[in-house]
Amino acid sequence: MKPTVLAAGLLPLLVLIWRAFNAALGANPLLEITHETGDWTLRFIVITLAITPVRRLTGWHALIRFRRMMGLYAFFYGSLHFLIYVIADRFAGLDFRDGIWAWSTARGLVASIWEDVYKRPYITVGFIGLAAMAPLAVTSTTGWIRRLGGRNWNRLHRLIYATAVAGVIHYWWLVKADILHPAIYASLVALLLGFRAFRT
């Protein structure tokens, strides 16, 4: 069962690769990959958050075995999303005053990312969402659970709530006019967080 789920998590990426090699990403492939990886980050966050409520409601406790994997996939797609943004949105937009292979390119890239994170609220919020997942990915090992102790580990991993909220705000702020999709994710996240708030 676990290897199957593990493989399933790679499917969105495989589909993207298939589409890339079959010229099926549309006229603006880099933006399409940005959108797909962003979507999958948010979907894996929702799946991760859904595991506890579904266990409670159905009594299917074996599900807990997949929570860590789903969380890691959220971080994995979030990192890809960020990487594509860095390459396609920031690097590709530099002016390369001294050619591509120059220190000024590296400095310009860092400055360009920083400026965007600082200046554009939707990027700021996305960045916070991704950054909040990093310590969770690092401490996802059994070793770290032991080291931190279950209680602290659980407390730390509530940071995923912040990422979920940040992800929804990020999406809401980036759409031009149609808020349907961000609104759907907002309701899902509200439902899943609400479940935690109201159960005793």
Binding site: L13, I17, I87
Partner: peptide
Amino acid sequence: TAVGAAAGT
């Protein structure tokens, strides 16, 4: 797979 995707597009 990630490298493949990037190269492919």
